[in-house]
């Protein structure tokens, strides 16, 4: 039984990281008022780009993941152009980008023969003696570098939003673009920066799945985690720390599935595989019921394109 819990708890962090990174990226974008549904697609782009760089140049896995971030940020510029400059409906633009990315990554992966090629990927940091401590060692001290970086990243995003002038501007644009504009804040530029930075984090989430979790590229390998991250943001009420907690929750659900099978508990496999989505559904219902009698903390101008009141 102890082995079951130790192996389960030890896998939670690395399964929680993609959710946390993607949710943080989405929070940046949505706090600036841009409803970003592109996560699933951008995660695929981040994943494929990092795998491509890793297979082609054999660099350090962290460098490959940086490439994934850059690729996702680059694709997000297209999304920004659609929703900020052309003011296309944000939901439709987001969905279009997802389908575009799914098709593109599948095509490129097959074309260049990157599909199903295993590589060593990102391994745990060696912490010497600490890693050998029973129970605590495997859980806390045999994780990879990104897991440890998550704490400063969550802190950084939270600090950026709450404590800096840039964050103040970003939130103002998401809450009340009219007031922000009247006070001299450029709504378009702020939103563009927020979407780009957020998308880089979403790309990193995808790259992490490919390089650290699965260590191989296959079509549609993010398997809906981008959508779960979108729900997670609502669950977290656009707060980075709550998003991190939610990511741990979903990570632990996802981690328990293979462990149950390994422990010899027989449950229908397909039922088990739906648990993250069932959990998402449950969380959404819970959040909605709570919001019936209270504020949702949703950014006031989320999803609304901003057009300056034309001079009559």
């Amino acid at each position: 039984m102890t082995t079951f819990f130790v192996t389960w708890l030890a896998t939670i962090p690395q399964l929680a990281v993609p959710y946390a990174l993607a949710a943080l990226g989405l929070i940046l974008s949505e706090r600036a008022g841009v409803l970003n549904l592109t996560a699933e697609g951008l995660m695929l782009v981040g994943a494929l780009a990092s795998v491509a760089v890793l297979l082609t140049f054999r660099p350090d896995p962290l460098v490959a993941m940086m490439a994934g971030m850059l690729a996702a940020a680059a694709v997000s510029v297209l999304f920004s152009f659609l929703v900020i400059v052309l003011r296309v409906n944000q939901v439709i633009a987001g969905l279009v980008i997802v389908f575009f990315c799914q098709g593109l990554t599948s095509l490129l992966g097959n074309l260049f023969g990157w599909t199903s090629k295993a590589f060593s990927g990102l391994g745990p940091v060696s912490l010497g003696v600490l890693a050998d401590i029973p129970v605590i060692g495997p859980i806390l001290f045999r994780q990879d570098v990104i897991v440890y970086l998550m704490i400063p990243i969550v802190f950084g995003v939270s600090y950026l939003l709450q404590r800096t002038r840039l964050g103040l501007r970003l939130r103002a644009v998401g809450e009340s673009p009219e007031a922000a504009d009247a006070m001299g804040v450029s709504v378009s530029m702020t939103r563009f920066l927020a979407v780009t930075a957020g998308s880089a984090l979403v790309g990193l989430a995808g790259a992490y799945i490919a390089v650290a979790n699965v260590k191989v590229w296959i079509d549609d390998m993010t398997s809906g985690r981008g959508w779960i991250a979108i729900a997670l943001v609502i669950f977290a009420r656009w707060n980075p720390w709550r998003a991190a907690a939610g990511a741990l929750l979903f990570g632990s659900i996802q981690a328990v599935i293979p462990k149950l099978a390994a422990a010899g508990i027989v449950l229908p496999q397909y039922l088990l595989m739906t648990t993250p989505y069932l959990a998402t559904l449950g969380v959404m219902i819970w959040v909605s019921i709570r919001h019936l009698n209270g504020p949702s903390d949703e950014p006031g101008a989320l999803g609304q394109p901003y057009v300056r009141e034309e001079r009559r």
């Binding site: 800096t164 002038r165 840039l166 103040l168 009219e178 922000a180 006070m183 001299g184 006031g300």
Partner: peptide
């Protein structure tokens, strides 16, 4: 009123002063 409603008074005043001097630091 041209105010961001979920913000504090201080944040609104700070926001109105952002236009020109652009520093990212929390000041």
């Amino acid at each position: 009123f041209k105010l961001v409603r979920p913000f504090s008074i201080l944040d609104n005043v700070l926001l109105s002063r952002l236009g020109s001097g652009d520093r990212i630091a929390s000041a």
